Each structure stands twice: as C-alpha cells, then as structure tokens.
Simulated scan of single mutants.
Amino acid sequence: MLVSAIEHRPQSPGPALAVTESVRELFLEDLGELPHEKRAEALARRFLLSYAGHTRAAYGRDLADWFGWCAALEIDPLAANRAMVDGYARHLETRRSPATIARRLSAIAGFYRYGVAEGVLSTSPAEHVKRPKTSNDSQTLGMDRGEAKAFLAAARDHSSRAAALVTLLLHDGLRISEALGADVTDLSHSRGHRILTITRKGGARRDVVLNPATSQALDTYLDARADGPVFVTSTGNRWHRSEAFRLIRKLGAAAGIEHSDKLSPHSLRHTFVTLAREAGVPLEDVQDAAGHADPRTTRRYDRGRHNLDRHPAYALGAFLSD
C-alpha cells in the first residue's frame, strides 16, 4: 500500500496539477495538522520518495510489514520505542534470513531518521538497535567459467534475442533493468568503441563498452532495426523483466547448471564480477564496470576471491625470485 501510493503519483507534476487531498498530504501539509492516524503513513510516503525503483519497492514492503506489527500491538508507529523494534527483530529471526532482517531494520531506521530530520520525532527508536551480521559473500547463485560458456551456448541455441541478452549481461555485468531499459538509439560509437548508454540506479547515464562478441550478438538480433527498445516482445513492446527471469532459468536447465531453479538475471552479474577477477581485471575496474559505489559490494559478488590459486603469495614469490 505504501509503495502503490507513491508509484501512482504523477511523475512530472505541472502547474495544472490538481491539489487533491492525497497530494496535499504527500507534499504540502504540515504533518502535525493531519489526523493522528494518518501521520505515520504520510511520513512513510514522504520518506520513500527519497528512493527509486527496487529499493523503494523493497523499503515500502519493509515498512508495511513494520506497520502491520505495530497495528497488531495497537501502537502508533510514531509512538514506538526501542523495545518494540528489538521485539520485532526477534520476531523476524524465526521467519526471515539475516540479510532480510538487516534490510528491514535499515528501512525502519531510515524512516525514523527521516522523521527526526523533519521535526516529527525528537529521537529515533531504531537508532541503537543491533542488526544481524550478514555474510561477506553474496548468496546469489553464480556460475564458473565452464558453466558460463555452456549457458552462452544454450542462449545461442534458443534464439537471437536470448543470445543478445545473455551475452550483454555476462560480458558487461549489467543489471537486468539497465539492459531491458535500453533503446536502440542508445547504441553508438565513441573513440573507436561500440558503446551502449544505459541508465544506472539513481538515474545516472553511463556508457558501457560492447566487445566484438556482444556487438555481433546485438546486431544479429536487431537485424538493422533502428528504433524502439533494444529488447522487445513479439508485439514490439519492451520485454518485461519477469519474462527474462523465466528465460534465464530455462536456459540454466538447458545448459545443465546445477540448481538452475535458483538462477536469476542477477546471477549473470555475479558471474561477470567473478570471471572478470579470475581473468585478472583489477578490482577497481570491475567495480567501475559494475557501477558499484563501494568496492566491498564488488568483493561480495566475487565468488572466487577465496580461490587459493589467486593468493598473492604466488605472485610475490615469482616477483622476488627474478
């Protein structure tokens, strides 16, 4: 409910926008002037405007679950105390993974920090709540080099569209939203490189290099088409992520990937990071290519970072023996 309340707001409000009661609550009203029972949700809607895409959707679900917990206790979320937040965390421990609990507590803490910053609250009940420790290694299923090659072959056997998408995801490590959000007019050349301009999380536009294999796969699929989305359905509409998700699992099964039922488009992004590091690409270059703000995120994606073959002792021994 919190997410849908925002997703259906006008995206570009102009002078002619009617100031309805719901719009007034979202943008204009002093929260203190709203009925008591509306304040928490109005504050949550304002807080969620700070985020976009999947982060906003996830935080919206997290806050909705927290609000449901508060409702079961018959307590206004704006009257919650630390004991309630700690109790909620203990409640989740038997139902959710540490990573999910950590994200939910992060959403709750962010919501209350926002409330303090806006002067709605004097203190945050989540300020000192401890979050569970999470693994330094991502739990998303990735592929090794042999599996990635088999996966590419399965994509080529399936269709030119599948081959183009998988080659792009594996070779450039794009998020599925970045790949499916691209248009044909985003393809161009720059200083001798074939590039695709994509929209990163947060709306930033970035150029990614298409190597010869990716460029050829895209050209074969597009077949000289000059406009519209890069990846389209049979009716010409933009390909939806849910359809791509199903394709990835189908290709995984065809390629004989173990636990292919756990594959997702994000698995190819993890595979990109792991194989790029195994190929000797410096961490900072992989980080930049993946669009990660923090190198620790890139390291979590690198499933081969504990590979003893990559231990610096070997390189140092060779260096010192010269």
Rank of each mutant, 00 (worst) to 15 (best):
H270M: 05
E284P: 13
T297L: 09
H270C: 01
H266Q: 09
A290V: 02
P265F: 05
E278Y: 00
T271S: 11
S267P: 07
V286Y: 04
T274M: 04
G280S: 06
D288K: 10
V281M: 13
T297Y: 07
A290F: 07
E284F: 15
V273T: 15
G291Y: 05
L268D: 08
F272Y: 13
D294L: 06
L268F: 00
V273N: 14
P265G: 13
S264R: 00
S264M: 01
T274G: 02
L268V: 00
V281W: 04
T297A: 06
L263H: 06
L263W: 11
V281R: 06
P265H: 05
D285G: 00
A293R: 14
D285M: 14
L275D: 01
A279M: 13
H266S: 15
L283R: 07
A289L: 07
L263D: 05
D288N: 12
L263P: 00
V273G: 10
G280P: 01
S267Q: 12
R277G: 01
Q287P: 02
H266D: 15
A279Q: 11
G291H: 07
T274F: 02
D294A: 10
V273A: 15
Q287Y: 13
L263I: 12
R277K: 02
D288M: 10
R277S: 13
P295M: 14
A279P: 08
P295Y: 15
R277Y: 09
G280M: 05
R277T: 03
